[in-house]
Design a protein around this nucleic acid. Structure first.
Lengths: 308, 308
DNA sequence: TAGAAAGATAGATTATTATCTATACACATA
DNA sequence: TATGTGTATAGATAATAATCTATCTTTCTA
């Protein structure tokens, strides 16, 4: 019968079978009822057996008709599955990926993105690097696919997947008296002049918590609004601070002394974040899987911040 | 994709997949190669991914193409199975059944056939009643669907299914001296003048075998060529004989005395016979099943006569 | 009995599919 | 380089599928 029937006829037949009515099938398919009637006559004539029978005003499927309805559903299911399968793979051949990262994450995000694009050359990618406020605003507006953050927001419902270690290390000027000491304790360190990011910064909270665990309170000598400003203040001899190791650029490690302090580095993570209700595109899903499949991935599972 | 593809396109694609060549597929389908090429371009464009790739002169299926070939085979398999299923059932709604029977079997065959036709009114049936020689000739020529015989031929390779009991009873004239005796023994019976069918007749063989088992030889007084002639001779007082109970018509039982003889009735069967290599039609198969499903069916299985 | 509801049939039109011939392009081989 | 093999593209035609409007037929219900 594949030589003589058409998918359209089978579609019309399946609608009749489901709705139990020629008229309702014609409405669903935006056809006139005579069209439906004629297509069914053609189909039944072609197969050679009645497919429906009419008792009064009601129509019922014959056993042959019921069997054909079942066969039709199987066939459509096979085709739909194939189409979805292709659509998924095509989504990885063409598509867009839009990322947003806070400034510090920009020291590794371009590299990750570059590796991914090498695998899937047909995908268009964009990466915006900006401050945390703008990242959070963009998350709330659901403007991008994924966001890189060192601390998932707690007032927005997001899915946050840890993708990389984010160690917080203590930095001092290279000629700092503690530069070559080993195993510096926290009390000794607390007596140094501290340079800190603004209150609310994830890094600052982690540092203060680490000292508080040892009954120590830090009083910053200076608060600065960016990691870059802090780095410059350290080099100018204004004090010490603790920053993400990723805050150091490739040519900066030798400019600073990384102090060997008990309780440091504080081990934190970088997270790939997206709003909780968002359906990730095939590409975004693939990128996230790619990040998780890299050798530096952490073993933990996604963290969902609490719903307000 | 069911909204835009056609079974024809899938057929062409499946042939390409199987043969690994556009040109060979076009030959198999009696098309020109450009037709095949264009249909495949349409299909691939519609789906949105390449289905075949060409390396030099060879074509290979892409993974997407392989998956579609598999899906296509599944779909065709579903449709073919449905079509075959319908064809079977339609074979019972319309069709022909051609039967042939020896004369004696004509006393029950029309009734069986009539009952079957009541169940399947759309089936055209024919029943020819003739002598055994013509039945055997017809079997050899494979001219009819089924044949009714009391004794399957041994020189033709047939399938013979017992369908009914065929008791051989001893008949005498109503005023015969043994008419009311009970439990007549074979020696007493052997002294009567016997009327017999021609040598080779299955009934005659069965009778002679029954007497031989008791060390008795029958010498017929008269040999006659038909059961009707034998019945008339019995009524004329020329002797006794043993015939199939089915040889008596509905209004004949009271015209004859059925003798109560030890060793009688001899229990034989009626067989539905067809040549061993013949594929029974749906209708013939259904009729045979119908015969076997009747309450008077014997419990035994088909007998195949020996292959020469 | 009249009217409504549901499917069937006739006639016609439009859109789409299927296919062909002719030719171009690409690759392999002698 | 010439030739053969295999697929792709352009242009055109014929056949078929799909659909509509108008009307008919049958059944049900008030």
């Amino acid at each position: 019968m594949r030589h003589h029937t058409t998918f359209r006829q089978l579609e019309i037949f399946e609608a009749i079978a489901r709705l139990g009515s020629f008229t309702r099938a014609s409405e669903e398919l935006f056809l006139t009822q005579p069209t439906v009637s004629m297509q069914m006559k053609k189909l039944a004539d072609m197969i050679g057996v009645p497919l429906v029978e009419q008792v009064g005003k009601k129509i019922h499927l014959t056993p042959d008709g019921r069997e054909l309805a079942q066969a039709t559903r199987e066939i459509f299911s096979i085709l739909d599955r194939y189409t979805m399968s292709v659509d998924e793979r095509r989504g990885l051949k063409q598509g867009k990926l839009s990322l947003m990262a806070i400034t510090t994450a920009s020291y590794f995000a371009p590299r990750l993105l570059g590796e991914f694009v090498k695998l899937y050359p047909g995908i268009d990618v964009s990466l915006r690097v900006t401050n945390k406020e703008q990242v959070l605003a963009s998350i709330a507006d659901n403007l991008d696919d994924l966001y890189f953050l060192g601390q998932p927001p707690e007032d927005i419902d997001v899915i946050a997947t840890p993708i990389m270690d984010n160690p917080i290390i203590v930095l001092a000027a290279p000629d700092h008296p503690l530069a070559h000491k080993k195993n510096i304790n926290l009390e000794r360190l607390a007596r140094e002049p501290w340079l800190m990011r603004e209150r609310g910064s994830g890094t600052r909270i982690a540092i203060e918590r680490r000292f508080a665990e040892n009954g120590i309170t830090i009083h910053p000598r200076l608060e600065l609004g960016s990691n870059e400003a802090i780095k410059q203040a350290i080099l100018a001899g204004l004090g010490i601070s603790a920053l993400s190791r990723h805050a150091l650029t490739l040519n900066q490690p030798d400019q600073f002394a990384v102090l060997d302090v008990e309780g440091f580095p504080i081990l934190r993570h970088w997270y790939a974040v997206y709003p909780a209700g968002r359906q990730l595109s095939v590409v975004a899903r693939a990128f996230l899987d790619y990040l998780l499949g890299r050798e530096e991935s952490p073993p933990t599972s996604p963290v969902t911040s609490s719903t307000p």
